[in-house]
Computed example of a mutant assay.
Amino acid sequence: MTSAAPTKYSREWVDGAASLKRAVAAVEKTERVYFDLEADSMHHYFAKVCLMQILADGGCYIVDPLVKLDLKPLLSALAKKPLVLHGADYDLRMLYQQYGFRPKSVFDTMIAAQLLGRSAFGLAALVKEAFGITLGKEAQKADWSRRPLPADLLDYAAQDTFYLPGLHQTLEQELDAKGRLDWHRESCAALVRATERIRETDPDMAWRVSGSAKFRPRQLVALKAMWNFRENIAREQDIPGYKILPSDVLLRFAEGVPVEGLPDQIPRLPSRLGAELRNGFLQAFEEAIQSDPKSWPKPLPPPRKPVKSPHPDLLADLKKARDQVAAGLHLDPSLLAPKAVLLSVALTGVSAPESVREAAQWMHWQENLLLEPWLQAAQRYQKPRSP
């Protein structure tokens, strides 16, 4: 069932002190803020926030963070208001990493749709369902760091926030009617905490691209050398590494490295790279395969065999109990407990609530749904107590 078309709000481009002051005032006057942002990770090595779209007090303020503005007053005002976003994970991570921003609270419309049992929960699917409007995809791969931004991109950026008030109202009412509003609040709070954890990259793993697991050490040193050369160029030029040379080309070079001697033939590098870059890649490759074997990286050890549950059928019984609860609620079972949680809990033997809680690391609503069914499912595996 579709709702009325969303309101088209006035739009203001914020790139100076006066317009920024108006945006801050609008945020301070409003009860909640509808928020979106655009970044440039597809076009630059060092990803950054390129736009902030802020729907507040009846207007949409499109903030340009790339100009030299002091955004502290705006971020401070935003931190005091509930934010409504769709798919907030990436946006909150970018805001935290770039500005140290922590929101007061978040209403994520994607999480809401998932907790209501929607099988299609992307923004386009929700907008189509709620308003009967088909969103275009032409701007999804746009370079948001371009200046000036064309009018069609500004329209695209602004319109995403236009749909959020209607989606928020509808989804919040549905959650409340189903008694799942607290589930959503807890899930959004957990998301905020998760986005404040910085994901560190292991330097010994970054270059081990998919498809290299079975390479010999001499093949690995060739891959690592070419990958490092590519990343250095990518950092210097501030473009993603894959745009310089895709990883599958690096893999083809490494695959052709023999146990000893030189390869009979090597893949061709694309002419678009230019002679200097092509020579750089080839030099890195040749120096690597002729380097001291003592310096070659070692293959990763095979993955450890998973620890077996004390009861072979317990995992299947836990999964069956989870799936039954999820089916009754018309939810994706993984929302209640993903596979990793199933495995972790099965290893405990499910003999006591405390061990299950520690293994599952549940939110309260998940525990309330699954703890008792799992304890019951595991009863037949427990040893009877001695009299």
Rank of each mutant, 00 (worst) to 15 (best):
T2G: 13
S3K: 02
S3A: 08
P6C: 02
S10R: 12
S19K: 08
R22T: 14
E28P: 03
V33Q: 01
F35I: 04
L37S: 00
Y45R: 15
Y45C: 10
F46Q: 14
A47M: 15
V49T: 15
L51G: 11
L51W: 09
I54F: 00
G59F: 03
Y61W: 15
Y61Q: 11
I62C: 11
D70P: 15
K72N: 11
L74N: 06
S76N: 14
S76L: 11
A79N: 06
K81T: 06
P82V: 09
L83K: 01
V84F: 03
V84G: 05
H86T: 12
H86C: 11
Y90D: 10
L95S: 14
L95D: 13
L95C: 14
Y99T: 12
G100A: 07
P103Q: 06
K104L: 13
F107D: 05
A112S: 09
Q114G: 05
L115Y: 00
R118Y: 12
G122F: 04
L126A: 11
V127R: 06
K128Q: 13
F131L: 06
T134I: 13
T134Q: 14
G136K: 10
Q140F: 09
A142D: 09
W144R: 09
W144K: 07
P148W: 13
D152K: 10
L154K: 10
T161F: 03
Y163N: 02
L171W: 01
D176E: 08
A177L: 01
A177M: 03
G179L: 02
W183E: 04
R185E: 12
E186F: 06
A189G: 02
V192K: 00
R197M: 10
R199A: 13
T201H: 03
M205K: 07
A206D: 08
W207P: 00
W207V: 00
R208Y: 05
S210G: 09
G211R: 04
A213I: 06
P217L: 13
R218S: 04
R218E: 04
L220D: 01
K224A: 12
M226T: 09
Q237G: 01
D238C: 03
L250E: 06
L250Q: 06
F253C: 12
E255F: 08
P258D: 09
P258A: 07
E260C: 07
L262F: 11
D264L: 13
P267E: 07
R268Y: 04
L269M: 07
S271G: 09
A275Q: 13
E276S: 04
Q283T: 15
Q283M: 13
E286R: 12
E287N: 15
D292F: 12
P301V: 06
P302F: 01
R304Y: 01
P310T: 08
H311D: 11
L315S: 10
D317H: 07
D317I: 03
D317L: 12
D323M: 04
Q324T: 15
V325L: 12
A326M: 11
D332C: 05
D332S: 09
S334L: 05
S334R: 08
S344Q: 01
A346C: 00
G349I: 11
V350C: 15
S351V: 14
E354P: 11
A359S: 00
A360T: 03
W362E: 01
Q366S: 14
E367I: 07
L369D: 02
L371V: 05
L371N: 02
Q376M: 15
A377V: 03
Q379V: 14
